[in-house]
């Protein structure tokens, strides 16, 4: 199995074998993160630009640590310090960055699909998607799958419930793409105003009328953050009502399998989509997800560097 892509923009673009290769590489990269000297010389001399048009702590830091552990040089550009505030277009920013000869650009952008545009503009540079609008967040999907694989030893025949604002969630889309390719079933629940029409067409996906139905006998309960910054005011009456119908608490968690794992991509709104009892409880794998994030991103950076440039 060879990884031939120069970009990782969406898990939709990868096949099952490619996803398995990325996860296997990530599993073996983890050993580096437990050493005293957390660095290997693999990407020495490579320049990686982290271009974040949207706020991010976890993902940006995780990509930066991943790059540094592989000995690449990293530069971070965020909107408040970039020329985009002065009106520069993405195309112009890209061409200017290209003049500095980066090997990989890791970008987060509010517009879905902007990475495909960037990839066409920059044929000699690898593009990694760190989240684009409501499209995909492939590194999150992969680290979620790695965390599930750690727990169950497999990724097929799992029942995974994803609950919350599906419409605005790129995390949900990447997980749906990845998990259904690996042979698992995804059950979605959320307020009808936050459920995109036609989401069933993405794969082995079932839209449930209630949260109870989705998490019943599930192996994984993945809760999504209520993205108040992306929503208008009209999608839900108030957070208390949301929490009552779509919040995870110790009571409704009992509906899932006894050893079910609880996941959340973060940042968490405690008391809204999840009660603190669940966040800090024994079934929570939230910090494990963050830990796996570094290894998964190391694997992504490693494999895109060996991909075929056009």
């Amino acid at each position: 199995m060879e990884f031939k892509h120069k970009d990782i923009i969406a898990l939709r673009d990868l096949n099952r074998e490619e996803i398995e290769l990325l996860l296997a590489t990530a599993e073996n990269m983890r050993e580096i993160n437990s050493r005293d000297i957390k660095k290997v010389p693999t990407l020495r001399g490579k320049t990686i630009i982290n271009l974040f048009y949207e706020a991010s702590t976890r993902t940006r830091t995780s990509f930066e640590i991943a790059a540094k552990r592989l000995s690449a040089d990293t530069v971070n550009i965020s909107p408040s310090t970039s020329s985009s505030t002065k009106g520069e277009t993405l195309a112009d920013t890209a061409l200017n960055l290209l003049a500095m000869k980066p090997d990989i650009i890791v970008m987060r952008h509010a517009v879905s699909g902007s990475h495909y545009f960037l990839s066409k503009k920059l044929p000699n540079c690898s593009i990694i998607n760190a989240g684009d609008g409501a499209h995909e967040h492939p590194s999150q999907g992969l680290l979620d799958m790695l965390t599930m694989k750690d727990r169950f030893g497999r990724l097929d025949n799992l029942k995974v419930a994803i609950v919350g604002d599906i419409t605005h969630s790129r995390v949900a889309r990447s997980n749906i793409q990845g998990l259904t390719k690996m042979g698992s079933r995804v059950f979605l629940a959320g307020p009808p105003t936050m459920m995109p029409p036609g989401v069933e067409r993405l794969g082995n996906v079932t839209v449930c009328a209630t949260m109870k139905e989705a998490i019943q006998d599930s192996d994984v309960v993945m809760m999504l953050r209520i993205q108040q910054e992306r929503q208008g005011k009209t999608l839900m009456p108030n957070t208390r009502e949301y929490s009552r119908y779509f919040g995870l608490n110790p009571e409704n968690l009992k509906l899932a399998k006894p050893d079910a794992m609880v996941m959340h991509p973060g940042p968490i709104n405690r008391g809204v989509e999840m009660s603190s009892y669940v966040v800090d409880g024994g079934q929570s794998h939230i910090l494990k997800q963050v830990e796996n994030g570094v290894a998964v991103r190391m694997a992504m950076l490693y494999h895109v560097c060996g991909g075929e440039l056009e």
Binding site: E2, F3, N28, G307
Partner: peptide, 9 residues
């Protein structure tokens, strides 16, 4: 070309 799979240390 394509990067080799990484084994476990």
């Amino acid at each position: 070309g394509a990067h080799l799979p990484v084994g476990k240390t």
